[in-house]
Design a protein around this nucleic acid. Sequence first.
DNA 1: AAGCATGATGGAATCGTTTCCATGGAAAAG
DNA 2: CTTTTCCATGGAAACGATTCCATCATGCTT
Lengths: 354, 354
Amino acid sequence: MEKRATIKDVAEAAGVGVATVSRVLSGGSASPRTRERVLAVAAQLDYRPSALGRNLRQRRTGGMGLLVPDLTDPFFGRLAEGVLACGRSAGEPVVLASTADDPEQEAEMIGMLLEQGVDRVIAVPSGGADTWRPAIRAGMAVVFADRLPADAAEQAGSSAVSDLMLLDGVPAPAAPPARPVDVPAVLADDRSGIRTAVRYLRGLGHRRIAFLGGPGHDRRVAAFREAVGDPVDEELVVFATGSRDAAYAAASGLFQSRPDLSAVVAAGNVLGEAAVLAARELDLRVPRDVSLVMYDDVPWAELCAPPLTVIAQPGRDIGYRAAELVLRTGAARRPRTVVLPTELIVRGSCGPHR
Amino acid sequence: MEKRATIKDVAEAAGVGVATVSRVLSGGSASPRTRERVLAVAAQLDYRPSALGRNLRQRRTGGMGLLVPDLTDPFFGRLAEGVLACGRSAGEPVVLASTADDPEQEAEMIGMLLEQGVDRVIAVPSGGADTWRPAIRAGMAVVFADRLPADAAEQAGSSAVSDLMLLDGVPAPAAPPARPVDVPAVLADDRSGIRTAVRYLRGLGHRRIAFLGGPGHDRRVAAFREAVGDPVDEELVVFATGSRDAAYAAASGLFQSRPDLSAVVAAGNVLGEAAVLAARELDLRVPRDVSLVMYDDVPWAELCAPPLTVIAQPGRDIGYRAAELVLRTGAARRPRTVVLPTELIVRGSCGPHR
DNA sequence: AAGCATGATGGAATCGTTTCCATGGAAAAG
DNA sequence: CTTTTCCATGGAAACGATTCCATCATGCTT
């Protein structure tokens, strides 16, 4: 429990002023002689500058915050690993919080981060733009990953690469004019991924294709609607809340209410899991009775019987790039939205329509 | 980007001294009149005390560090969620780092946390006791979760509940005398879990039972050795490094070199995954040709064909309890090791020996 | 009514760092 | 040789909170 050496100790031991020590250690100008001596003394005393003092002085904590809905979901685990990897190589700590897809908890966590002086956050947003506006106004550098806030403006027909805008107000006709706030984001190319999956299923002869979504899958469902074309059978588009139980219930309900469907696109790995389980429970054979494509590749997809055909998305890269973006913030130009490619991996869960 | 109100602003606006404001806000004594006024002004100014100033003054950062090998592993995801949950209810932030099961990275992260002033850490240790001694000497409150440092003293025969001791030196005969350092830990009852699994397999008639382990599974392999009894067939005990590829290679190698084995205990979910994959690749039927028990229950275990028989461990609880422990540290008596129960969940991956 | 205890209050020190500014000396330019 | 420039250097002021300590008013005891 011995106390750590402070910059003052080093200064005294080296016979210089504290300012000089600080300068040497943070790369300022100093004569080679003093620099050498200070470095030697610092090493000898095992001096490590306290982030506390520095943070206070600079009015900001180093490092970045990471907000994800649920670390239990392997996708967010991969994303977090990506952020961590970037943080490590930049020497920046990461403070983590999970929101359970609850805007209220999200707001609370934003407050906590603000209090901690964390001014850079990469987030998988659960709440709408209004949840984030206070953070942005407080000077936080925010980068969204994997998703946009639920009410972000994005027409189904527009390119996913277009600038990100957060809109004010409710979708009522008399809504106030849009007040755009642009926040960079790193996303998977959901649109292309979903479209590829739908086309693949179409190619196999499927016509009644269902969509099983969860919280935060707005862009995916929009892409689905766009891909299946105009007469969208709304009964075939169902949403579940975040829990595994809810996902199972939704999947099971879908299969039971519409025995005529022949293929399902599950918008995330827990939805996919639920679909497999529900299908088995109802004695539906995959892919004989129903074909299944899951968005997000996970290790167990290969273990399934049959192995699941998936749309792979680079979870780790999403995290890494988002972290890069948030760390570079403040540099010259403001960062733009990044869209990473997805890939259809054909395994055994899709067959021809019978 | 407006700057936040400081305690000084509140003091001025309320017409009191900063000391009074501080006292009111942190529950010190104050007259009802002032208290009320200060509270009102603080709310009106949307004042939030800066953790930076407080931390510096108290020479410690609030919150806790969390060190896990790999967030991609769903078990650690659950553990992290547990820690987060406890942190949330205590209002404490969590700074996260992953170590990739590499003692060097672990040491680096410990240094980083120290620098940040984080003085409470819950860790799934990868390195040995020596990696941790500096942290403990620096006054860090450490709680281990899920594992003990690799070289922690624990005789196979001794109870897992016994005090935890970290020993110095190499296992050479002339090793220096043990210098015990006790650190609390929260562990699953590996011993009983593994024993239950082995007995279960024994009961099905299996005699050649293999063990497939990974990094950090020392206590599990010890329990396995103890459970199978004296003549341990060393060829049936194999270890893989952390990666999925290595696990697959180990599993595959095991099946090929010892076609006579009839059951496998996989010491973790990635090992289990590898075993399933390798078995399938070699055309071994589960459970006809080989029975399989996996340590750690994960959602996909149920999706497998056949569903996997597992030893469930309460990952989330381990995290939660560990966080509780580390937050209570400093209170009266020093905390002890906690062992949480495991449960054998019989599904379909084990059959009678043929 | 005088003395004493109690409790509310504000000033000032403190935590460890960065950074502004003044000082001094040496090198470069004249 | 003198003047200008430049750079290394150290003192001191922030940063925003907590907390020690002195002060002052109030209420109680005798």
